[in-house]
Computed example of a mutant assay.
Amino acid sequence: MPRQRSNNKSNIEIVAIAASAGGVTAIRKVLSGLPADFPAPILCLQHLNPSETNVLAQVLQLQTNLTVRWAHEREELTAGVVYVCPPGHYFVVHANGTVSLAPQATKHGWVHGVNHFFESVAQSYADRAVVVVMTGTGKGGAEGVRAVSQQNGIVLAQDKASSVAYGMPEAAIATGCVDRVLPREAIASLLVSLVCEGNPLSNELVSKTSSLLIAGLPISPTFQDALENVLDRAIAIHRTDMGYIHLLDRQTCTLALAVQRGFDVGLVDELQTVSITEYSPCIMALRAGETVIVEDVKVDPRFTPHRAIAAAAGYRAAQSTPLASRTGTLLGVLSTHFRQPRKFVPWEMKLLDMHARYAGDLIELFQAKKVG
């Protein structure tokens, strides 16, 4: 759906992100939730091994509509472009809207590099900057966030539950200069609110973004990454850009949203939990133990209660496939959605069925590890 623009004008002119261990997936999660017309440049400093050929920019480009590329010395920053710092360097941002690449020359060059990066952002952009400290080991960025805070810039940090390594966010939070601690799933929506819509950093906004947390079932970052890969493959099989996976919470008799693609932030609350007493395609698939297909939501009588949601989300057809263990235990539902009425050919449904069996094995494996 096209993003609704606010009449408020944001003063934010730059977003700076730093991450280390687990950062590639975390940054991808943030970028995938930002619109192509994001009105500020985004600088990403990810800890990389200088001795290896790196394809980070290409990897980040896979799941975002923004332009992602490696940064170059003294280039002028452009809104809507994601700049990736080359290995062995850190960013130095200048007040004239350009960026330099400084070498990380010392043993502790990464830690100092993050601090210098954030400090240069603070000096050049002051209260027109947002910095984000994401998953990573060590204490890189702690001194830098102090400088940003002193200049009235906004500091965000990833929370512990969604971080692979909590060293960097924890060190930043310990300074007392972090404005919001968020799961990685909520960071993009907050950036949209601050930068695209010009909303203030208010308590009401915190309650809104906090509602984007996965409902019902605790999911580790590694498990969520695996589920996202499963969903991406299913979406590719059906040549669409919308879908989600719900996991079955047997204690509450509900389906809890685990991952989604293509749905506007404002609709995520509608998808968070689905009771097994409801009459929806995903519940029908769960009850029947087989795929349920709605070729056109506007004419299928079974979909009448959900037409308003479908119209708001912008889809006309949907399918839901149950996910089960090898012993037949129901684990969840995988759904894909389509912007136009859609008929399904046998080969793609057979391929999806094979993929659903793989997904069931994967979910069972992760749930067994949790029990063990």
Rank of each mutant, 00 (worst) to 15 (best):
N203Q: 14
A258Q: 05
T240H: 06
G167T: 08
G262C: 12
G216W: 15
G216H: 11
S325V: 02
L365W: 08
C85S: 01
F38I: 04
A142R: 07
N11Y: 06
R146W: 03
R250E: 02
A95I: 13
Q123S: 13
V68M: 13
H246S: 08
A18G: 15
P200V: 08
H355E: 09
Q4T: 14
V148P: 07
L43G: 00
N203L: 15
I309E: 08
G198D: 03
V164W: 00
F91V: 09
I214V: 04
A368K: 11
W110L: 15
S275W: 06
V84T: 06
F366I: 10
S163A: 14
S320A: 15
N203P: 08
R28L: 09
G113C: 05
T64P: 08
F118Q: 02
V164E: 01
G153Y: 11
S193N: 08
A215C: 04
H72F: 15
R180Q: 13
E143N: 13
L194K: 00
D232A: 13
D353R: 14
L60Y: 08
K139A: 14
S202K: 00
V145I: 15
V30R: 03
L62F: 12
P346L: 15
N199Q: 11
A174K: 11
L331I: 02
L191E: 04
V84R: 10
S6A: 15
D249I: 02
A258D: 10
Q158C: 10
E13A: 05
A57W: 04
T137W: 01
S100N: 11
F303K: 03
E170V: 05
L56C: 10
I12G: 00
T222F: 04
S202N: 09
P86F: 08
I235F: 03
G360W: 03
A310T: 09
Q58S: 12
Y279S: 09
A188Y: 00
N152R: 14
S220D: 04
D179M: 11
R250S: 07
I187L: 12
P322C: 11
A308I: 10
V192N: 09
P322S: 04
G138L: 06
A310F: 12
P218D: 12
F366M: 08
L255S: 01
G97M: 05
Q151D: 00
P221F: 00
R261T: 12
L255R: 02
K160M: 09
A285C: 06
I214F: 10
L227P: 10
A40Y: 14
L31G: 04
P87Y: 03
G167Q: 02
N8L: 15
N152A: 12
I276G: 00
K343I: 15
G176S: 03
D241R: 08
A313P: 06
A147H: 13
A234F: 00
S280T: 10
L191V: 01
R28M: 12
V164S: 00
T336G: 13
G167K: 04
Q104L: 07
L271H: 01
G372H: 07
N7I: 11
I237R: 06
G332S: 11
H238I: 00
H47W: 03
A310C: 10
N229M: 14
E295D: 05
V164K: 08
